[in-house]
Simulated scan of single mutants.
Amino acid sequence: MKKKVAYLYVIIIVGCFSCGPKIIQEPIVFDEERSNLTLSYMEEHYGIRQEEPTIIPKMIVVHWTEIPTFQKTVDAFYEANLPEHRNAIAGAGSLNVSSQFVVDQDGIIYNLMPETTMARHVIGLNHCAIGIENVGGSDLPLTDAQLRANVKLIKYLKKKYPIDYVIGHYEYQLFEKTDLWLEKNDSYRTVKTDPNKEFMEEIRKRTKKLDIKPLPKG
C-alpha cells in the first residue's frame, strides 16, 4: 500500500444495527490538488463553477472494479492524478477515477471519500452521483455478501439524500436526454457492462419498496 504522507490513518467503524450498515473509513488522498482537479473537471464537463467540489446526490451508480483485490482498488484510486495507462479516458482530464464507496468480496463496506464530494466514476453524471464499487469483475464474480451489503448501503443513502435513481454503470447512457445529463463533450463515451444485469436485477428486487424512479426509456 502506498505510504500515506502527512495523513492521519484511522480505521473507524460507523453505523449501527438500527441506523445503517457498518462502514470502515479508508480515505484516499483528497488534498488541494485533487480538489482543484475536481473543480476543473466539473467546469469543463458540466459547466458547473463553484468553490468546493460538492454534490447533491440524486443517483447511486453501482460498479464492479475489474481489479481483483480491495487493496489494489484503493491503490488505483489513491492518488489525485490519473495514471498514464488510462489512455481511454485520459483525454477527458487528469483527475483520477475514484468512488465514494467500495464493497469487498466479503461484503465489508469501505468509505474512501465524503459522500457529498464529487468522484470521477461515471460519464455525464458525476455531479449528482454516489458511486459504489464492488471488488470483482468478469473473471471474479460478485458475491451474495456484496449483494446484501449493496442493498443495505443503498437503503442507508436513500434515507440521507434525495436519491431518485439506482443504476448499474452499464445503464448510464440512458440518461443522455434527461436533465441530469450535463456532459459537454459529445465524443466522451465508453461502453460498460458492470456490474452485470443479474446483480442489478437482484438489487432492484430487494429495494423495490424504496421510492426509486424507473429508468428513462432508451
Rank of each mutant, 00 (worst) to 15 (best):
K4G: 11
W181M: 13
K160W: 01
K152E: 13
E43G: 11
V191C: 13
G20H: 08
Q105T: 12
G47N: 07
V62E: 05
K184A: 12
L125S: 09
E183H: 09
K208Y: 11
L140P: 09
K3V: 07
S40C: 04
P83V: 00
R86D: 05
D144N: 14
D106V: 00
G91E: 00
Q173S: 15
V151Y: 12
W64E: 02
L37N: 02
I212M: 08
H127V: 01
N196W: 03
E32D: 10
L215F: 01
A6M: 13
I24M: 10
V151R: 14
I123D: 08
C128R: 11
G131I: 01
V97F: 13
K213Q: 11
D194W: 04
P162W: 02
Q173F: 06
S18D: 15
E84R: 14
V5I: 12
Y7M: 15
S18P: 15
I11Q: 15
D179P: 07
R120W: 06
Y170S: 13
R204E: 06
V5R: 15
R34D: 00
E115L: 04
Y161S: 05
V10T: 09
M42E: 00
R148N: 09
Y110C: 04
I24Q: 14
D186Q: 12
A129E: 01
S40A: 14
Q71W: 03
E44Q: 12
I55T: 05
E171Y: 05
K213I: 03
S99Y: 05
R204W: 07
Q100K: 10
R206N: 15
F17C: 14
G218I: 07
N150F: 05
L112E: 01
E44G: 07
D106K: 04
A92C: 00
E51V: 08
L180M: 08
E115M: 04
P162F: 01
I123R: 06
Q50C: 12
H63T: 03
Y170R: 15
E79H: 15
P216L: 06
G168K: 04
Y170D: 11
V97H: 15
T143H: 11
V14C: 13
L210K: 03
E26T: 14
I60P: 02
I60Q: 02
P27F: 10
S99C: 08
E198Y: 09
L147T: 06
V102F: 01
T207Q: 11
W64C: 13
T116V: 11
G15C: 14
N36M: 13
N134M: 03
E183F: 11
F175D: 01
N150H: 04
M113Y: 11
K2Q: 11
N134E: 02
A92S: 10
V5P: 08
S94Y: 02
R34I: 02
